[in-house]
């Protein structure tokens, strides 16, 4: 039996597969696009084929009936209810907590900045959720915010972070509205600010929103960061400064939610087995 976590986020689909012993035997990512759930099933078939030697077409012909698959699937992320092959749906919050705790057992706080949502999660011993806060009102302080404003600089989220760490004087971005922030960027460009300083200002703006949210539930060390935006060093650095605590980035931070989902699939299976 295998265990898969499928994280269908607003930007990307992530799949992590474990074997019976809990070892990661494969992981894949792709863009969510219009058919997020179908894309996820496609990745899952590929991973199954690699493990079982049975071609993806065969899995496809069976129609992906979850009862017939040699894999238990937990789906998470915004598209979690769309995946027909899933045995269970679990929220991203629970999955990120579980995944992060598995990778770093000293984890007490998880900061996950995803495409539409950013979250601060307080994690208990064992990786369950104690409390959490999520962005409110709008997409300010999320990955989408960074994506849009990075576009105005002809950069992407990761390269924006590399620029930011080279800045000596971040500009002030005052609007939390993504569209207005984008036009602020344009006026900073017109005023001759360097790309580095604008990039740093944007990373600071995101970090400020997330740090404000963290204040609501209280932050305890160790603080780890998950989600795609953790690849952006500018945001990580700004967050650490604002929280006054080191912020560790987990390896493959974008996969942590899917990993947590896979672990939960394995936990549930283990709990349902007759005790010997």
């Amino acid at each position: 039996m295998f265990f898969a976590g499928v994280d269908i986020g607003s930007t990307a689909v992530k799949v992590v597969m474990l074997d019976q012993q809990g070892k990661v035997v494969g992981c894949e990512t792709t863009r969510t696009g219009y058919r997020g759930a179908e894309n996820a099933w496609h990745l899952l078939k590929g991973l199954l084929a690699a493990q079982t030697g049975v071609t993806p077409e065969v899995w496809g012909r069976q129609g992906g009936d979850p009862a017939k698959l040699p894999v238990r699937v937990v789906a998470t992320g915004y598209g979690r209810h769309k995946l027909a092959q899933a045995h269970r749906q679990v929220s991203e919050i629970t999955c990120h907590a579980r995944g992060a705790y598995h990778l770093e057992p000293g984890t007490a706080t998880v900061i996950d900045i995803g495409g539409q949502d950013s979250k601060v999660i307080r994690v208990a011993q064992g990786g369950t959720v104690l409390d959490f806060a999520m962005n409110d009102k709008c997409a300010a302080g999320t990955g989408r915010f960074l994506e849009v404003v990075a576009g105005a600089l002809e950069e992407n989220v990761d390269s924006l972070g590399r620029l930011a760490v080279a800045s000596n004087q971040p500009v002030a971005i005052s609007s939390t509205c993504t569209v207005f922030a984008e036009s602020e960027v344009v006026s900073h460009i017109a005023a001759g600010s360097s790309k580095e300083n604008i990039a740093a200002g944007l990373c600071l703006a995101v970090a400020e929103r997330v740090a404000g949210m963290a204040g609501r539930i209280g932050v305890q060390p160790r603080v780890v960061m998950t989600g795609g935006v953790a690849h952006n060093r500018g945001v990580v650095r700004a967050l650490a400064t604002m929280l006054g605590l080191p912020v560790e980035v987990l390896p493959d931070p974008h996969l942590v939610g899917a990993l947590g989902a896979a672990l939960l699939a394995r936990d549930a299976f283990a709990n349902n087995q007759p005790k010997t």
């Binding site: 915004y78 749906q89 679990v90 929220s91 991203e92 919050i93 629970t94 949502d117 959720v129 999520m134």
Partner: peptide
């Protein structure tokens, strides 16, 4: 999502 996470 928030409700589901809270119930979990």
């Amino acid at each position: 999502t928030r409700i589901q996470a809270f119930m979990e």
